[in-house]
Amino acid sequence: MPYITTYKGEEIKTRVEEVRPNFYRVVLGEREYEVDFLEPQKNLYSLIIGGKSYEVDVDAPEGSDVYGVGILGDHFEVEVVEEKKKKLAAKLAIGVSGRQDMKSPMAGNVWKLLVKEGDRVTAGEVLLILEAMKMENEIKSPIDGTVTSVAAKEGVPVAAGDPLCVVEPPEEG
C-alpha cells in the first residue's frame, strides 16, 4: 500500500509489502529494507534488518497518524498517512483554526479553572491548570475565541483524553 511518511518536515514515498507472515519489504523513497518482524510485547517490536537486531518502541495514540518511535534513548516523531488521504488533507486548510476541543493531555487533577462559559480568550491564554505528581501544568488556548462549554470541574480528576472545554473562533463576517 502506498503511504507518505513525514519526518522532520520531509515527505518520503513509502511502500509496505507483506512478503509472508512477519516478514515485510519496506521501501522508503530510494531505500529498500527487508524486515523480519516480531511483536513479542504490545507496541514493542523486535526487528531484524540485514542481520542487525533492533528493539523498537512504537507509541501510537488512538486515532492519530503520528507515532512516537523510541530506539536506544532516541525519539522520533513520524507521521505515516495513506497517499490518497494525504493529497486530500493537503487541499484543506492547514494550521490551527476552527473549533478547539480541548482534551486533557494526561491524567491529573483540575487544580484551577480560570475560565467559564462565555469568556473571551486569546491564543496562549491559560484556560486551566492541571496538577499531577506535584507538578502544575498550564493548559492554554491555541486560538483567539470564546469558551462555549466547560466540562472540567475544579478539584475533579481527569483521565488523559477527557474533554476539558471547547473554544470556538469568532464568527467571520
Binding site: 509496505v16 512504537v58 530506539i71 536506544l72 532516541d74 513520524v78 505515516v80
Partner: peptide, 20 residues
C-alpha cells in the same frame, strides 16, 4: 540519531498492520 531509517520502517509497518 543513527537509527532514523529503522524508526521510519517501524512506523510504516505499524501503519500497514493497523490498516490491515
Amino acid at each position: 540519531k543513527p537509527y532514523e531509517d529503522v524508526a521510519l520502517v517501524a512506523a510504516a509497518i505499524k501503519t500497514y498492520r493497523r490498516d490491515k
